[in-house]
Design a protein around this nucleic acid. Structure first.
Lengths: 195, 195
DNA sequence: GTCTTTACTGTACAAATGTACACTAACAAT
DNA sequence: ATTGTTAGTGTACATTTGTACAGTAAAGAC
C-alpha cells in the first residue's frame, strides 16, 4: 500500500471540515472525509496528529483541535528571485486571535461606521479590536464616549489638555476637558473583503 | 419534577463547555454537563436548542453550534449609561479566525511592505489574508507574483487585458499580459496597533 | 378540585462507535 | 535478496450511541 505519511494533507482536510462545521465527525464519517478505507486507519491518523500536537481529547473522550490546529502559515513578504516556491509557506505561523487579542475577557469588537478615520486606514465596515480599561497614552487610537456614542479618535495632548483628534481634517478636534470618558484602547483591526 | 424550561442555563453550560473544548460531547457526558439524569432528557434539550437556532447537525449527524450560539448577551460589558446598545456588538463569531478564514488549508497570511496600497487603507506592517487558488474577478484585491516578488494590487481589465492597478497613483499600472501569475486573492486584513 | 400541558425520568434496542489484532503492500537500507 | 519499517486494510467485539416509548412529577387553566 502507498507509503505516504501525508499527515499534512489529512490535517488540511480536518481543518477545512472543522472550519465548515465547528466539529469533528466520528471515525465512520471521518473515513470518507480523509479518503481512507477503514476506521482503523482513521484512528492511526488521529493518534499521529495528537502526537504532533494538533489534536487532543476532551474529558468526554472526543477528539478536538488544539491551538496549534488553528495556526495559519505566514508567507515571506519580499520573495527572492527564487520565486513562488518559497512563497508558499515559511516556517512561522500564528493564530490570528492569539496575534491580536491578549486579554480576551476585556476585549470586544466594535464595528466602524463613518469615515472620520479614513486617513488612518480605517474604513467603514472594518472592526476595531478594543481593549477596555487599558491605559491610554498620547498617540493611541482610542474609542471614547461622546454624547452617549462611541467615537474613534486619536488621543493627543495640547497644552496639557487631552484632546481627541480625527484622522480626517474635515472633522473638528474634540476637547472634552476633564469629562473625557474612554471606552477603551484600539489594539487591532480586522477587515473582510468578502461580498 | 421541576417545571423549568430553563434552556438559557442549558445553553450557557454548552457555551462554556464549547469555549473550553471546542467540541460538544455525546449524550452520555452531556447528561452530566447539563445536570440531567437521563440521556433522553439531553435529547429534548438539544432538539429545543436546535429549534431555537442555537444548534444544528453536521452531515455526520453530530450536534454543532450555529452562529447564533456565539452571540453575546448585550449586558456582557459594563457599558456607560446612555450608551447605544449597538456599541457592544452582538452576533459576533467565536473567533476572528472563524470570521475571516473559510478555507484554512488554502489560506496564508502575507505581511505588507511598501505603501503602494496606502490609499486602499492597507498599511505597511498589516497582514493580508490570502486565499490561494481562489477565482479572481476584476475589482478584487490580489497578490501577484511579479519578477519573483509578491505584489499587492487591484485586478482590473483594460481593453480585454488583465492589468494590476496600485491604489497609490504614484505607482504605475502593471500590464503583465498573459504572463499574469496570481498568488491568491485577498479575503481579509488584520492590523495590530501594539508596539 | 379535575384536566391539560410540560419537562423530565427510566427502559429498551438497533445501530454506530472506538479499539485491538492480524495481515498486507510499498518502500529503504544493507 | 533479505530484512525491517511504515501506513494502511479488514475483521471482530464489547461499549456506547441516539432515539422511541411509556411513565411521572410539577405547574397552570378551568
Amino acid at each position: 500500500m502507498p507509503r505516504a505519511p501525508n499527515d499534512t494533507a489529512y490535517l488540511a482536510k480536518l481543518q477545512d471540515y472543522y472550519a465548515r462545521w465547528r466539529s469533528l465527525p466520528a471515525y465512520g464519517p471521518l473515513r470518507d472525509v480523509l479518503g481512507l478505507a477503514s476506521r482503523a486507519g482513521v484512528a492511526q491518523v488521529l493518534h499521529r496528529l495528537r502526537d504532533s500536537g494538533f489534536l487532543e481529547r476532551t474529558p468526554a473522550g472526543r477528539w478536538t483541535p488544539t491551538a496549534r490546529f488553528f495556526e495559519r502559515p505566514l508567507a515571506d513578504a519580499p520573495v527572492p528571485a527564487g520565486l513562488p516556491v518559497s512563497a508558499t509557506d515559511s516556517g512561522e505561523a500564528s493564530s490570528i486571535d492569539a496575534y491580536l487579542i491578549r486579554h480576551p475577557s476585556r476585549t470586544v469588537l466594535v464595528p466602524v461606521t463613518g469615515d472620520s478615520m479614513l486617513d488612518a486606514g480605517i474604513h467603514p465596515g472594518d472592526r476595531v479590536i478594543v481593549e477596555r480599561d487599558a491605559p491610554a497614552r498620547p498617540g493611541d487610537l482610542v474609542v471614547a464616549v461622546i454624547d452617549g456614542e462611541l467615537t474613534l479618535k486619536t488621543l493627543a495632548v495640547e497644552n496639557g489638555e487631552a484632546v481627541l483628534r480625527p484622522a480626517n481634517p474635515a472633522y473638528p478636534v474634540l476637547r472634552p476637558g476633564d469629562r473625557l470618558d474612554l471606552f477603551g484602547v484600539v489594539v487591532g483591526l480586522i477587515r473582510s473583503y468578502r461580498r
